[in-house]
Design a protein around this nucleic acid. Sequence first.
RNA 1: GCGGACGUGGCGGAAUGGUAGACGCAGGGGACUUAAAAUCCCUUGAGCUUGCUCGUGCGGGUUCGAGUCCCGCCGUCCGCACCA
Length: 861
Amino acid sequence: MSERFDPSSADARWQREWDERQCFRADDASAKPRSYVLEMFPYPSGRIHIGHVRNYTMGDVLARYKRMQGFEVLHPMGWDAFGMPAENAAMEKGVHPGGWTRDNIANMKAQLKRLGFALDWSRELATCEPEYYGHEQALFLDLYAGGLVYRKESAVNWDPVDMTVLANEQVIDGRGWRSGALVEKRKLSQWFLRITDFADELLEGLGTLDGWPEKVRLMQENWIGKSQGLQFRFDVIDPPAGLPASFDVFTTRPDTMFGASFAAVAAEHPLALKLAEGDAAVAAFIEECRKGGTTAAELETAEKKGYDTGLRVAHPLDSAQSLPVYIANFVLMDYGTGAVFACPAHDQRDLDFARKYGLPVRRVVADGQNTAAEYAGNEAYTGDGMLVNSGFLDGMEVEAAKAAVIARAEGEGWGKGQTVWRLRDWGVSRQRYWGTPIPFIHCEACGIVPVPKDQLPVTLPEDVDFSTPGNPLLRHPTWKHVDCPTCGQPAQRETDTLDTFVDSSWYFLRFASQPADKPFDPEEIARWLPVEQYIGGIEHAILHLLYARFWTRALKRIGKLDVAEPFASLFTQGMVTHETYYRSVRKDFTREDGSIADVLTLDEMYSPFEVIRTSEGATLKADGQPVQIGKVIKMSKSKKNVVDPDEIVATYGADAIRWFMLSDSPPERDLPWSEAGIEGCGRFVQRLWRLFGQYDAAASGEDKALDRKRDQAVAAVAEDIEALSFNKAVARIYELASAVEKAAPSASRSQAIRTLLLLVAPMMPHLAEEGWATIGAGDSGGLVADAAWPVFDPALLVEDEVTVAVQVKGKLRDTLTVAKGTSREDLEALALASDKVQRALDGAEVKKVIVVPDRLVNLVA
RNA sequence: GCGGACGUGGCGGAAUGGUAGACGCAGGGGACUUAAAAUCCCUUGAGCUUGCUCGUGCGGGUUCGAGUCCCGCCGUCCGCACCA
């Protein structure tokens, strides 16, 4: 064995070996128990980011460990390859989105290979290839046939300069993020998926996902947003001609109906719009509401504003009462019915509004002993209590009163119990080129016609022009012109493409089953799904994970597969962070005549490679002067605090960076990158290598203590990996390595070295293979990638000597080393015999003795 | 505002209610070396009177015993948000 482990030659050599032997190819026909380990597939942006390395290293350790435990493991990789950046590159650099994307894939695949991940590349897929998106089109048609896809007019953010629809996230302060143009609301006919049909199931299903973080389940629960209450009708008293005679409101507090003091409709409510037609003041008010900002800060401080329409509605429970109708800026058109009844005493917004406009505030829920109808103060009472001042509801608790009002409304026919969801149907139309074409044809005679399945895939044209804004598919000279499949007359293709979240809603199914003639085979899916462990970033907690759950359930409902929840366990890993370095620089903006127009203080950022970091501070290499050390934040190009995984691999080898990704920080938390840290990892790789070199098959003699440490490490590391507590597994391995280093040569020591190699094999596979070639030869002769996890006798884990803490009044005074299982009496006697204990007791009488066998003795004086 | 997570040495972090600080990084001292690198050994929570005191954001409580459980604060981060 050579002196040093040389990753620059060993890494590539073993990667080639794994490739040639197809070690990580999942066998569909295997009789072994199965395990599907999946990390969220990357967008091919160009380079692998350090966050990818962390994500895929975690999955890789688990996949390799599962293989060692005798599982048939499916651990695939692919590319979420459609999306905006490719079109941006096309516009900026004049390249083709497809060429750009495929080049990126090739580069990133090579990068992933250099990290030595145990992936089944035979199942690689890219969502931008017709072999993938053609099947997606087929599934979309199946969902259409199943009634889960429909078209409707919907308002979108329209960028009039780029001539495209923008996602909400792409609208910044009302302007398009690229063009800077004021964004318009535009009505477009768009394709929708009926995710709201599954709102209840998706919510219920969360309860079965024991392997998901509570945080993610809560986020999805809030997103789905189930509210139960009463929807009821307000009749307008003496409605003016041309106005609706009634409108519906929704409330979760029907119990508070006797406290109602006004009704309010949203500015975009049909009633308000109708009133505006004949009344300029109403129109002006509506316009004012529209201008209101939607940022969090603006909403926080926004004043409640209302416009009294002069209309009045009858109180459904008390015909003697009527309520004024306001148009109010705090009522949202797209939630519930866009209209509310207001009970100021028990709702903060209603109270703010009532106080401002001098409307009555009547208590109907008792706040403890406080039952007076007169409601004082500016804080609404929203707690439980007994109904008061409420006619037939008096004396009931809130929940009972809700039920009573709903029952009465349903009996009398003016309302019914209703569930309202925050979740909206999923709009999937995008006016973009680089996405899956929506497989429909618009025919003047026949309407909307699905593309017949034998004509799939509908492929994207290659010859497209990005020199002018807008959707290239729309202005392509020939692509959209087709004959109607039904009547044969000239017709037009749908030129919208699917939201890329559709692509990622079923890729995990295609990984498990890849027939050429259909999206997947349900029997093959049943063999691999659900994914045993899914790993990815928390940023996908809602959209991707909810869409994937929905898509799977939708396919189940139409009989395409028999899986309800695609991901049995989910793990959301933290980010990789790094210090930032900056200097505050004064910038003078001078006019042409030399006068100063503006002075700003800007932070100039420096990359870690421009900076020398010592324990005292940081200096810039260029001038030797100090720089400020900023916050530790997620690596990002704009903050210049990125490190390139490729450079780390070139310097320290794949195993060192993998080890770093697993060390120190718990995997769900952020991991601060440090130069010193990666150097330490590089040193540990070499330290293990030296240990492997000390393996001596001929050594003899037993070292019981080391045997036990070895077995304890095997058990603990296995437990830690299964819990994804990689940082603890790493610490255990360090401990065993130190113990082995200190031990004198023996057969036990050689055995421990061999075990150590197996324990690090999932984490440092290249080093392990290189060592196994010497140490493992003779027992299997094969690769450590195919080796089994070390076995041990659980009985041997038990220590025969234990250290027992001795406390006096709860404070540690001494420790005793005794045989395991020493009796309570003996422990007590030994504790009392201790000088330190006697000194601490200082003659006091021992009143009580607590003995926890093998752990501690506490003497209470 | 609502919901959630977290607060432990210089830093990342360990710790089924039972010896707080495992393990790593950084620091200090030493060995080897002409020297450096590499490696190895010792040391490293604070304070003082060197065997004692204090120490897990703050204040209470439960307990023989609390980083851990309960109550009330403070702070940081994340998600959602005029959701009726």
